[in-house]
Simulated assay, not measured.
Amino acid sequence: MRITKVFRQKPKTGILMLNMGGPSTLPEVKPFLSRLFNDRDLLKLPFNQELMAKFITERRYRMIEKHYDEIGGGSPIGKWTGLQGDKMVELLDEMNPESAPHKYYIGFRYAAPLTENAISQIERDQPEHVVAFTQYPQYSCATTGSSLNHIARLYGEMGQKPSSTWSVIDRWPVWEGLIDAFAECTIAGLNQIPEEDRHKAVILFSAHSLPLSAVERGDPYPHEVAATVYAVMQKLGFRNPWRVTWQSQVGPKKWLSPKTDEVLEEFSKRGRKSLVIVPIAFTSDHIETLHELDIEFAEEAEKAGLKHYIRAPALNDNSTFCQSLADRVQHHLNVEIPRGESFNAQLGLRCPKCTNPSCQEMRNFFNERKRMLYASK
């Protein structure tokens, strides 16, 4: 188990790193799935959400436990987020002493360390300012939106206002350091293919899929994924053919396509025998990379007769990526907040067909935090 650093100084700036999280042990799988299927910001189940979530969890958890067992007994996302956070605040303390000391908090939506525990710790520490920093580079109502809704909901349930001022980094799909890090990982994948085949390799940028109903509602996620991919390919000089594909669909509804696993055979039939898979919407390894891409899709690639199936490394503790985290927070603190941008203008705009009242309540919450932030200056 990873031992976190002891933080003895009162932090001036807190950074809440938001993500879905993942069960670190097999006994955590069932409660993880229960929280996930009970999240109405993520998906709305028919009939009674709580009963349906319980039914689905009971049907699926043993299979999911088996998957986690096959990747070592749990998700490493907590470990990687901790390493990223350690490096980020270490860099920020040097780069930005005026907002130091910095302390990061991990706020996972469905697994420990949960957001509610992070909020409790923040209220105990009472930093002057807190940045809610999404670790989903591309915004979706189902991911970043759900995490931000949850923060507002938690304070409402506590019946108190935050003791700190707050601001939000709610998306960063084309941040230069992020693009540099993804480009490095893509090159590392390409370099595993012999030189005579490398230039012909197809790069598949694989992102977690989204139901078409969410896209039709106005969710910006697929457009922001496309922006990240184009920026990476621009950095690489468009040296290889590439496509965006989608993975991890759940349930019978229509989701974004083409599916990552289904294109493997199609490209093989057309003579494309070398593929590099780049997990473009994830900032660390977890079940979707370690099991779905590395085990399930690798088997499909072998059946399809691919000569080379390479999964590019995830960002994990990539030094360029860790530097980009610090750079992104520094830019937010020193540039965006002073010019009146405590959160992205896009966050203030709900999806055109949004009917979720939590989305407006969240915006009301952070608008109030914005007024408090500038009133304190």
Rank of each mutant, 00 (worst) to 15 (best):
A375Q: 12
F55I: 15
N117I: 02
R35F: 03
P194A: 11
V276P: 01
I280Y: 14
S147D: 03
N96S: 15
E368Y: 00
R124E: 15
A345Q: 04
K303H: 08
N367L: 13
Y110C: 09
E184F: 08
A152M: 04
G72C: 02
S24E: 12
I119G: 12
L290C: 05
E70A: 13
R109L: 11
K161W: 09
T245I: 09
Q247G: 07
P162I: 03
E288W: 12
R35P: 04
T143C: 02
S34F: 07
P258R: 10
K353A: 11
Q135G: 00
D180S: 14
G189T: 07
H129N: 10
L275W: 01
E296A: 08
Q135D: 03
K377N: 04
E302G: 01
K44L: 12
M63V: 10
D93Q: 05
K303Q: 09
E157A: 15
I203A: 01
K12T: 13
S167N: 02
R311G: 04
G72W: 05
L210C: 06
I287H: 07
P352S: 09
A181N: 09
L347H: 12
S146Y: 03
P31D: 09
G14N: 08
I64Q: 12
P352D: 14
S248W: 11
H291Q: 07
G78E: 10
F297N: 14
P173R: 04
E265A: 15
V202R: 15
E157R: 04
K253Q: 13
V215W: 06
M88H: 05
E157S: 11
L92C: 09
E184Y: 00
F365R: 05
M88Y: 06
V263S: 04
E65Q: 14
